[in-house]
Design a protein around this nucleic acid. Structure first.
Lengths: 150, 150
DNA sequence: CGCCCAATTGATACAAAATATCATTTATAT
DNA sequence: ATATAAATGATATTTTGTATCAATTGGGCG
């Protein structure tokens, strides 16, 4: 049995909860449940997805709290909305480093995550040149995947 | 008087209109008006912004057509929704190359556009390694700007 | 140029998504 | 354990986006 992805998931949650607490916010049932849903390996959830899955885990959690939590987590850069589909944000959980990169196939919408990549050095250079203190980045590459290019 | 930004703007519009036509769509008043608004130098407009500004230019253009146009332009990758603010897409016009990069200061939300940058070579490499045909990319760097870091 | 006709539009009605309000509950520091 | 400010869930409401459909229009063709 493969526990590595669960380990990754739980450490992601732990890190996220720690960041929440450090920022002075309480760890509530609603917030923990939303984070549990977001940290599952099926990432890139829309708000509707999150509502549905939170509902399944704990029907007592209200809609409003889910939206409030998404907003708070975004503000703290713990999650980041992305735009795979027009007009419906998909949320991803950002690692503590604040760096994330993925490839999207515009035909089939398949997402390939790019773990740590060489982009980071380049970004450091840009940041230095512009005189800013970087806190993270999001890189989206649009590319027709092998399956779709046949 | 500085006309360069107007030149850039009108060529952006021209290129966008050409891409529309090439894809087999008609150049209509609604579509042209939406593109005019989007191509102004104050980029990163929300749909509400677009509706407001289109309304100001030509009250005859209907809400539904504005949404339809935003959807069509997104589908054709002529514009791209981004998520600078939680849950409200901001639209940017993509150049024909399909490459775009900007820096956002999470404190003041100031956006610094990065013209052509060195990222592109690196992206080509990644694309080749993954065996995909890239059509563009969007890079967002989050960084505290000099004004905010004082 | 002026006709044709599918594509597109605008108006209206409708559905879905997000937000404000507020009395009640809960997490946490002490 | 208790006090208390933060956070919640339920409800009502607003905002945002979509479906429908008769009327209009852009652009190719003669």
């Amino acid at each position: 049995m493969d526990t590595s992805s669960n380990d990754t998931m739980s450490s992601l949650i732990d890190s996220a909860l720690a960041r929440l607490r450090e920022a002075g916010y309480k760890i509530t049932n609603a917030r923990r449940t939303v984070l549990e849903v977001l940290c599952q390996d099926n990432q890139h959830l829309t708000s509707a997805d999150v509502i549905e899955q939170v509902e399944a885990r704990d029907p007592a959690v209200g809609r409003a709290s889910i939206f409030r939590t998404l907003e708070l987590l975004t503000e703290l850069a713990i999650i980041r909305p992305t735009y795979l589909t027009p007009r419906t944000p998909n949320y991803i959980v950002m690692p503590e480093s604040g760096h994330h990169a993925h490839i999207i196939c515009p035909q089939c919408n398949k997402i390939t995550e790019l773990g740590d990549c060489e982009i980071e050095d380049l970004i450091e250079q840009i940041a230095e040149r512009q005189g800013l203190e970087i806190t993270g980045h999001l890189l989206e590459i649009y590319g027709i995947c092998p399956d779709c290019s046949d």
